[in-house]
Amino acid sequence: MRRRHVHAAFAIASTLLAAFAASEAVTLHRATRVAAVVAGQADAAPELPEARLMRALAMGEAGRFEDALAELKPLTRTEDEGLRLAALYDLGNLHLREGTRRHATAPEEALPYIELAKQHYRDVLRQRPTDWDARYNLERALWLAPEEEQVAMDAAPPVPSERAITTMRGGKAALP
């Protein structure tokens, strides 16, 4: 009787340890591939969301706005908070750059991009208020498209939608 119990105890303990080791090995394997992806070997593990983010950044840099957008969009729904916030932030950057680029040539086309950029930064800040990069870039977007109180507001209730009060100070470019 006692012998069987000892065997069972050993078996349970070993199984648990083996399960731990296996799960840790899986985690480690994934981490190694993520590291490789981030280090630039995007094809090391193309199926990883991290690889998708890296691809999107490369596309954005190459000026392929739409492609980059398509890669980043799904990442904003991922479970991994760090990755999700990074994707949102990068979406903000993508839009802000696009807005800035268009601002130079056709300022009236730039506004929707800048507004979308603000929205993405605010999404980040809602989830992580201490994200200083998001704060800074949001402020840059606000310099481009400030949101001012309407002058003629006579005790009117606060307007619920930010878009409704968005104004554009024409000709004010933050270009070098």
Partner: peptide, 20 residues
């Protein structure tokens, strides 16, 4: 002009390997 793009967080391999 802008803070740079954010890369995915690089996991710290060493402690993971040590734990395994």
């Amino acid at each position: 002009e802008l803070r740079p793009d954010r890369l995915p967080a690089v996991p710290d391999i060493a402690p993971l390997a040590a734990r395994r």
